[in-house]
Computed example of a mutant assay.
Amino acid sequence: MARKSRSSSTSSALSWRSVQLAPVTLLWGSEEYFISRAKTRIRAQFMERYPEADRVEISAKDYRRGELAAASSPSLFSTSKIIEVDQLSSMSEDFLHDVMDYLQRPEQHIAMVLSHNASNSRGKKLVDFFRSSESFPFVECKPLKTDREKLEFVSQEFKDHRKTIDAKAIQLLVAATGADTAELASACSQLMSDAPDVVTEELVHQYYGGRTEVTAFKVSDAVVSGNSRLALTLLRHALATGVDPIPLVGALAARMRHIAKVYGSRGNTTVLASELKMAPWQVEQAQRDSRRFSEQDLAEIFRVLAEVDAQLKGEGTDPLFALEKAILTMSRS
């Protein structure tokens, strides 16, 4: 099959959400959840076209010369197969040789899915081939690293299922589920399944309100709104029920960093969001929050946060008192 080169104006990577069936697809990245979703999507498309197809799994690490040719040959029961090859980051030279040869003449009625966890440059020749090809999809499956990426992921999950979720509810859900993408996706799925058409902040709190991250979110919300009484009440309740205070300080610091980033800024929200690597609604929220503070307030708040962080990590004799003092300082600014 002849291949075309992607033009310089075209992104070299496609989305795992929208990957379409192709003779051979490379999934590139270390996020197993996205790899699984991409594989499931490709399998469904292939099985819809070839319901009787076989599924074959191959390890590129343990591969021996000729396995691809044998796997792609018609079997006694089916001529159609979906071949999934994992462990490309440890691929053998035999596999690299055979797959590069196969890419020049892919078999009909075969869909091959290759998975490379991007942990090293093993098989660079193969990866570069996919990056420059328009015929064979190169699909990024990278982890969600920033809050913005997680927030956009949740928003898109609900949009794909024609459900609505409030901006505040998205923030709370991301705070509740931490860094694990699969857990975040599972939470989205549960809410979409159990909840009405619109998911609110109150509903997310009902499902996940017992988690430390949610408490931290609520405390930081009270602090930046200037409600010192509520902030202290939430803090004391959290500490009395065994919540670790360090994540609370982390949540407060993250909220204040957003405020500091946008402080005094004007102009198009979308442009600012792109420049600051934040979601547009995060910029709008931080701009609203920033109106309560002066430059001197922000400087004092970051000093207090650094001090309480050090005390919580062993440098103070009464870190919880220091935390209460920090909450009051921030909420009364």
Results as ranks from 00 to 15, higher is better:
Glu32Asp: 15
Gly29Ala: 05
Gln156Ser: 12
Met278Ala: 02
Ser11Thr: 09
Gly267Ser: 10
Trp281Asn: 11
Val283Ser: 06
Gly178Cys: 06
Val262Asn: 06
Ala167Gln: 14
Leu151Phe: 11
Asp244Tyr: 08
Val249Gly: 00
Lys145Arg: 08
Leu103Met: 06
Thr10Met: 13
Ser11Asn: 06
Val304Gly: 02
Leu173Phe: 10
Asp86Glu: 08
Tyr263Pro: 00
Lys313Leu: 03
Asp289Gly: 03
Ser228Lys: 03
Ser220Pro: 00
Phe34Val: 06
Tyr102Ser: 04
Leu230Pro: 00
Glu93Leu: 14
Ser133Val: 11
Asp86Phe: 14
Phe321Ile: 06
Leu68Gly: 09
Lys168Gly: 08
Arg3Gln: 08
Met47Ile: 14
Ala169Lys: 06
Gln285Ser: 09
Ala118Asn: 05
Tyr207Thr: 02
Leu21Ala: 07
Ser186Leu: 14
Glu315Tyr: 10
Asp128Asn: 10
Ala38Asn: 05
Ala22Gln: 10
Ala2Asn: 14
Glu93Ser: 14
Val198Phe: 01
Lys125Glu: 13
His237Tyr: 00
Val154Leu: 07
Lys150Ile: 08
Tyr207Leu: 00
Ala179Gly: 13
Gly314Lys: 05
Ala179Glu: 12
Val199Met: 01
Ile110Lys: 04
Lys39Asp: 01
Leu21Ile: 12
Arg162Glu: 05
Arg49Tyr: 05
Pro143Gln: 08
Arg55Cys: 12
Val243His: 14
Pro280Cys: 11
Gly178His: 03
Val224Gln: 05
Leu305Thr: 08
Met100Phe: 02
Thr270Trp: 07
Ala231Ser: 04
Asp98Gly: 06
Ser135Gly: 11
Asp166Met: 13
Leu203Gln: 06
Phe136Pro: 05
Asn117Ser: 11
Arg49Val: 14
Ala71Ile: 12
Ala187Ile: 13
Ala273Tyr: 03
Leu272Gln: 15
Thr329Ile: 14
Gly226Leu: 05
Asn227Val: 07
Gln87Ser: 11
Pro280Arg: 14
Val127Glu: 00
Arg266Glu: 13
